[in-house]
């Protein structure tokens, strides 16, 4: 990757740094080490809680601004669920809502200069995707039992094709957590890396540094949009997978 001057790599911004303790050389991080990533996760938790609880403090029938926003987020996800899953999806509203808000606020907090985007780490996004994947598969097993495996037989296919089609369907199903996690991770990684690289040129070009600067401003706007979009895509795919598990099996 291009360097912006000095020995800084644009990937340095993704390093996990321990905040409260200093590591001895050769020592690896423990389980409970409080890192910049942990800080952002806790900040996300606090912000979401504040947003929801403080927003609803008045509980007025004619809502004010904060309350409107909180209700908007509620209704947005509720509408999403009822559109994709229908009325049975109601019980999965908390998990979808939590996922959406967590990823959204995580992405957005990462847009603050000098902060850290915890969704830019594949292990975090993979863990979230696994939660969805395993949850949905267990749900399908609980609801349909062994009939779950009929899911992998595409409708209207001749039996001779099954040995070919079934592995493909299985692979397609198993690729869901991968695609879910890689999509989010790659978007965040690419966005922030790009920002860092372009920003690196600002100092180099002197007077003409206004061009990369303008580009960084535009990219920041784009990245904020992508923050929302990726949270939305994650949420709606979760809803679709829940729908798959509940129906169509």
């Amino acid at each position: 990757m291009a360097e912006g001057g000095g020995a800084h790599s644009p990937l340095e911004q993704f390093e996990i740094k321990s905040l409260l303790t200093t590591l001895e050389p050769g020592e690896t991080m423990g389980l409970v080490t409080f890192t910049n990533s942990s800080l952002m996760m806790v900040a996300t938790l606090v912000l979401i809680t504040a947003f929801l609880i403080l927003g609803m403090r008045r509980g007025a029938l004619v809502p004010g601004r904060m309350q409107s926003l909180a209700e908007l987020s509620y209704e947005f996800i509720a509408g999403l669920i009822s559109d994709t899953v229908g009325s049975e999806g109601r019980r999965y509203f908390p998990i979808v809502f939590t996922l959406f808000m967590f990823i959204l606020f995580g992405n957005l907090l990462g847009m603050i200069p000098y902060s850290f985007t915890f969704t830019s780490h594949i292990i975090v996004t993979f863990a979230l995707a696994l939660i969805v994947f395993i949850g949905v598969t267990i749900l399908a097993f609980v609801k349909h039992g062994m009939h779950f495996f009929s899911f992998f037989v595409p409708p209207g296919a001749p039996v001779a094709m099954w040995p070919l089609l079934i592995p493909i369907e299985v692979i397609s199903y198993l690729s869901r957590p991968i695609s879910l996690s890689v999509r989010l991770f790659a978007n965040m990684l690419a966005g922030h890396t790009l920002l860092k690289v372009i920003a690196g040129f600002i100092g180099l070009l002197g007077v003409f540094g206004v061009l990369p600067f303008a580009l960084v401003v535009a990219l920041t706007g784009l990245e904020i949009l992508i923050a929302f979009l990726q949270a939305y895509v994650f949420a709606i795919l979760t809803c679709l997978y829940i729908n798959d598990a509940l129906h169509l099996h």
Binding site: V62, P63, G64, L72, F76, L80, S82, D83
Partner: peptide, 12 residues
């Protein structure tokens, strides 16, 4: 346009 139930009536 997946925005359902938009019945906000103005900012506070």
């Amino acid at each position: 346009g997946q925005d359902p139930a938009d019945r906000r009536n103005g900012d506070g």
